[in-house]
């Protein structure tokens, strides 16, 4: 019986002594923190994806509390809704940003881009990229090892049977992890566009036309036909590569038909009607049409 009593008493004693020590230590090393940080962190999705550019959700919360305007702070996962909640909590204005989505800019399917060799090293695009040109003749295109797939925390990007990554539009939150992971800079965050409709150049090859064409049938060869066709000045051609500025693009899709290699892609548009030859609609009409859709 006495064993039991001694045990209980000594354990209690140890507990009390430890509690006192802990209390004083906690007092001594207390860190003063703005309580609003916790509030803001509570509003964030808590995925800690780092897509905002800060180390985790708490990082963004700290930055948001410190910053006066919330400029340049955006949680890509929560989007505008979360940001307006945060602004409300902090009593500030928030600038609304258009929702974005990751876009893979490479056409190098097995059919378009013949393989010239076989890679036998560790399955990592980063390693392959530092080693050599890749399995095809294109020094700019997708390497196909799936670093972007591994980087995605939202299960929103997968390799398809053509060996190219495909973004799941439902799941993508535009956190930008895949953009950082891709050693060739193929993936870009673009505006989601009205009704998710987008037009973009699906190629990043800066090779001269002939070289690019030889490596890949669907490469952008920098011919500039799209830029001539575009009435809004949205397309620039630099280093043998066309780029569509999504802020200027009105989604008229003329460039898509103009491209001789099919490097420009349109997504989520209804199938084109096989229209008889008629005068092209003016930009104003085009815009109206878009609004109606």
């Amino acid at each position: 019986m006495s064993t039991l009593v001694i045990t209980i008493i000594s354990l209690c004693a140890i507990g009390i002594v430890s509690a006192v020590i802990l209390y004083f230590v906690a007092q001594k090393f207390k860190v003063e923190e703005d309580p609003r940080i916790d509030i803001v962190e509570g509003l964030l999705p808590g995925a800690n994806c780092g897509g905002c550019g800060y180390p985790g959700c708490r990082g963004l919360a700290e930055a948001a509390v410190k910053s006066d305007t919330l400029d340049g702070i955006l949680c890509p996962v929560g989007g505008a809704a979360t940001m307006s909640k945060i602004a409300e909590a902090l009593g500030r204005e928030v600038s609304v940003q258009a929702p974005k989505i990751a876009v893979v800019r490479c056409n190098g399917t097995c059919d378009n881009r013949p393989r010239t060799n076989r890679y036998d090293g560790a399955q990592s695009c980063a390693i392959m990229h530092t080693l050599y040109i890749g399995e095809t003749g294109c020094a700019f295109g997708c390497l196909g090892c799936g670093d972007c797939v591994n980087a995605c925390q939202f299960d929103a990007i997968h390799m398809d049977e053509n060996g190219l990554p495909v973004v799941d539009e439902e799941k993508c939150v535009a956190c930008g992890a895949c953009v950082k992971a891709c050693p060739r800079g193929i993936i870009e965050l673009r505006n989601k566009g009205p009704k998710n409709r987008r037009v973009f150049v699906s190629c990043v090859s800066k090779d001269k036309g002939a070289v690019a064409r030889k490596a890949c049938k669907a490469a952008c060869i920098g011919c500039g036909k799209c830029a001539k066709e575009c009435q809004f000045g949205a397309i620039t051609v630099e280093n043998n590569l066309a780029y569509i500025d999504f802020n200027k693009c009105r989604l008229c899709r003329k460039c898509v038909s103009a491209c001789p290699t099919g490097a420009i892609h349109e997504v989520n548009f209804p199938p084109r009607k096989v229209e008889p030859e008629k005068a092209p609609s003016t930009p104003v009409e085009e815009e109206k049409k878009n609004e109606q859709l």
């Binding site: 010239t116 080693l131 050599y132 040109i133 890749g134 003749g137 020094a139 090779d207």
Partner: peptide, 8 residues
Amino acid sequence: VPDAAGLS
């Protein structure tokens, strides 16, 4: 010209 690794 392309070198041994295929890069220009």
